[in-house]
Write a protein that binds this DNA or RNA. Structure first.
Length: 555
RNA sequence: GCGCCCGUAGCUCAGCUGGAUAGAGCGUCGGACUUCGAAUCCGCAGGCCGCAGGUUCGACUCCUGCCGGGCGCGCCA
C-alpha cells in the first residue's frame, strides 16, 4: 500500500476510534481525502476531513481537528500533527519512516513503483489507429506517446493491458488510395491518366507506385479490369503503409499486441451479425429503406444511419461491430484514444456500447487534442490529401525519440499543443528531457567515481541521521511518493503527471547535489548519500521507463 | 445555430476528484566552478487565472451568460 493510502487509513481509523471512544459523533465518509499541501510549512500531507464533517458533527472544524490530532499522532508515520486556521489537519511524516522507505526502493529496484492488484483488470487500449493511407503524422505521434505511456502506467498498477491498433482497410478511402496509386503507376509507365479529384497527392504515393512496380509488375500486368487493378493497388498500398506505420511506431518504442483489420469484420459477417443483435435489442428502425440506430435513446443528439438504402453498412456499423468484438473478448475496461476531429462521434459509439450492455465505466474514450506544428514561430497546417504534412518519422529524425516522447507526454492530452520543431531541436541542450536524463547520468557518474577511488559502497552502511538535512528529506519524500503518483496518474488517465513528478525529482536532486558532497570523507555519510543517490537513480530510471524515455548513464 | 476542447507570467504549459499566500520550464537581468559532470545551482523581475454574475466556510477548479481561438456537427473513414 502506498503512503497516501496509509495516511488515509490512519485518518479514517482516527475518526472511527474517536467515535468509539465517544469523543466525536459518528461520521459517514466514504474515504478520507488526502492532499499535498502547497506549502511546506503545512505539512507533507493534509486532510480537510474536519472541514467537511463540521456540518454533520455540529462542531467547529478546529474542535474536530483537536479531537482527531492525538489519534493521528499515534501512527508511526506521523512525526507531528497540526490543526490550523480554517480546520485543516496537517501531517508531517517522521524522518524515520521516510528513511525506512529506502528499503522498498533498494529492495524492489527496477520494479519499485509497480503495484500488484488482487484482481487485475484486463484492459484494452486502442490508440493511433491512423488510416492506412499514408505515413503517420504528428497527431498520431502524440497519440502514440500518450497511449503507450498510459498503457505502461496501467500495467504498473497491476492491470493486464493489451495495446491495439485498428486498421481501417475498408471503404472509399482505400479505393481512392488505390486509384491515386494506379495513377502514379501509369505515370511511371509514361501513360497519362487523370488524377482523382480528391486523391492523395503526397509524394509518398509515387513511392508506393514505384514499390509496386519493382515487386509486383508481373501480377499487375496480369490483371485485366481496371476495377481489379485499383483493388490490387489499394491492397498493396495498404500493406505498404501499415508496415511503414508499424516500423515508425516500433522505433518510437510503441509496440502493439494486436493490429485489427476492419476488413475482417466485413469478411466474416460480424457486421451483419452486429446489426441483427441491434435489431433484436430493438434499437434499430427503418426509414426510407435505411436502417437507423436510435442513438438518441443513449444521449446522442441525432439518430444515426447504420445501413444505407443500397444495403451497404456505414462506417459506424463497422465500428460498433469492432467494439462489440472487443467487448466480447471480455475486457474489464476498453479505452480508446481518438483525435480531436472525432469527439462528436463519442456519444453515438458510447450509445451503441450501452445498448450492447457494456457498463458506462467499462468504456472510456479519451481525446488527444490537436498538435500545431510550429516552425520558426509559424504554424504549419497539415493535410494528408494535399500532401502537406510533417510525418512522425521526420519529427523523430529531427529531435530524437526521447525528446519527442517527453514533449508529447509532458502536457495534458486535452490541451492543444504548440510544438515548435525548430525550438525543440535548437534548444535541445536546455531541454527538460535532458534535465531529467542529466540527473540520472550524474548519479551514475558519481558511482563510477566512487569505484575509481576504490570506495566500497555498501547500502547497509547507511545511517538515517546523515540524511536529516532539508535537501535529503525532500528527496526521501519524493521517493516515497512515486508509487502513489503512478496510481493517481493511471486512475485519472493522465500520463503527464509522471513527467512533472520526475521534473520535481530531478530538481530536488540537483539541489541536493549542489549542497552536499556525496562522496564525503566520512564512510557512513558517504554510504548514506550514495544509498540516497541510488534510490533517486532507480526512481528516475523507472519513471523515464514508464514514459518510454531512455535513462542514459553518460551523456 | 448546436456540441466538444482551449483561454493562467513575454512564450509554452502545470495547478492533484472545490482547499491555505496561483507554480514550472524557456526567455530577460544579476550572482555561484582549483574539489564527486556548471547539460547544474541561487536570486530579481514578471499575474484583476478571458469578462460578468451565481453556488458555499472556501472557486483557477463547479453552474449560467457573454468574448476570443481551435475542432466537429455525412448515408466519409
Amino acid at each position: 500500500m502506498n503512503v497516501k493510502d496509509r495516511i488515509a487509513e490512519v485518518v479514517e481509523s482516527a475518526l472511527r476510534s474517536a467515535a468509539a471512544d465517544g469523543v466525536l459523533g459518528p461520521v459517514d465518509l466514504p474515504s478520507a481525502k488526502i492532499e499535498y499541501p502547497r506549502e511546506e510549512k503545512h505539512g507533507d500531507y493534509s486532510t480537510p476531513v474536519a472541514l467537511e464533517s463540521a456540518r454533520v458533527l455540529k462542531k467547529s472544524p478546529l474542535e474536530i481537528g483537536a479531537v482527531l490530532k492525538p489519534y493521528i499522532e499515534r501512527s508511526e508515520l506521523a512525526d507531528s500533527v497540526e490543526v490550523v486556521k480554517p480546520g485543516f489537519i496537517n501531517i508531517f511524516l517522521s524522518p524515520e519512516f521516510l528513511f525506512s522507505r529506502m528499503e522498498d526502493v533498494l529492495g524492489e529496484g527496477d520494479s519499485y513503483g509497480r503495484q500488484a492488484k488482487p484482481i487485475p483488470r484486463r484492459v484494452n487500449i486502442e490508440f493511433v489507429s491512423a488510416n492506412p493511407t499514408g505515413p503517420l503524422n504528428i497527431v498520431s505521434a502524440r497519440a502514440a506517446a500518450v497511449g503507450d505511456t498510459l498503457a505502461n502506467l496501467l500495467e504498473a498498477c497491476g492491470d493486464i493491458v493489451e495495446r491495439e491498433f485498428y486498421v481501417n482497410d475498408f471503404g472509399n478511402q482505400v479505393i481512392l488510395l488505390g486509384r491515386s496509386v494506379l495513377c502514379r503507376y501509369r505515370e511511371l509507365e509514361g501513360i497519362e491518366m487523370e488524377f482523382p479529384e480528391d486523391g492523395y497527392h503526397g509524394e509518398y504515393v509515387r513511392d508506393i507506385a514505384a514499390h509496386i512496380r519493382d515487386n509486383y509488375e508481373r501480377e499487375v500486368n496480369a490483371i485485366a479490369s481496371e476495377e481489379a487493378l485499383i483493388d490490387f493497388m489499394a491492397g498493396r498500398a495498404v500493406e505498404y503503409n501499415v508496415s511503414g506505420q508499424k516500423r515508425d511506431l516500433e522505433r518510437f518504442n510503441v509496440n502493439f499486441q494486436r493490429w485489427f483489420r476492419e476488413s475482417v469484420l466485413h469478411a466474416d459477417e460480424s457486421v451483419e451479425e452486429t446489426l441483427r443483435t441491434l435489431v433484436e435489442l430493438g434499437v434499430i428502425y427503418e426509414e426510407e429503406g435505411k436502417k437507423v440506430f436510435r442513438s438518441t435513446d443513449f444521449g446522442d443528439d441525432k439518430d444515426r444511419v447504420v445501413v444505407r438504402d443500397d444495403g451497404r453498412p456505414t462506417y459506424l456499423l463497422a465500428d460498433i461491430s469492432y467494439h462489440r468484438n472487443k467487448k466480447e473478448r471480455g475486457y474489464d475496461l476498453i479505452v480508446d484514444i481518438w483525435g480531436p476531429d472525432h469527439h462528436g462521434y463519442i456519444s453515438r459509439l458510447a450509445g451503441a456500447m450501452k445498448a450492447l450492455g457494456c457498463p458506462d465505466e467499462a468504456f472510456r474514450v479519451l481525446i488527444a487534442q490537436q498538435v500545431n506544428l510550429v516552425m520558426d514561430g509559424e504554424m504549419v497546417k497539415m493535410s494528408k490529401r494535399l500532401g502537406r504534412f510533417s510525418t512522425m518519422r521526420e519529427l523523430i529524425d529531427e529531435i530524437g525519440i526521447d525528446v519527442a516522447r517527453y514533449f508529447f507526454i509532458m502536457r495534458s492530452m486535452e490541451s492543444h499543443l504548440d510544438f515548435d520543431l525548430a525550438l525543440a531541436k535548437r534548444q535541445s541542450s536546455e531541454n527538460p528531457v535532458f534535465y531529467l536524463q542529466y540527473a540520472h547520468a550524474r548519479i551514475c557518474s558519481i558511482f563510477r567515481e566512487a569505484e575509481k577511488r576504490g570506495f566500497a559502497y555498501d547500502a547497509a552502511g547507511r545511517d538515517a541521521s546523515r540524511l536529516r538535512n532539508p535537501e535529503a528529506l525532500a528527496l526521501l519524500k519524493l521517493l516515497a511518493r512515486f508509487p502513489e503518483e503512478i496510481a493517481d496518474a493511471a486512475a485519472a488517465f493522465e500520463p503527464h503527471r509522471i513527467a512533472s513528478f520526475l521534473m520535481r525529482l530531478a530538481q530536488a536532486y540537483h539541489r541536493f547535489y549542489t549542497e552536499h558532497r556525496v562522496l564525503a570523507e566520512d564512510q557512513v555519510e558517504a554510504n548514506s548519500n550514495l544509498a540516497l543517490c541510488d534510490c533517486v537513480r532507480i526512481v528516475m530510471k523507472n519513471g523515464l521507463g514508464l514514459l518510454g524515455v531512455s535513462a542514459p548513464e553518460k551523456m
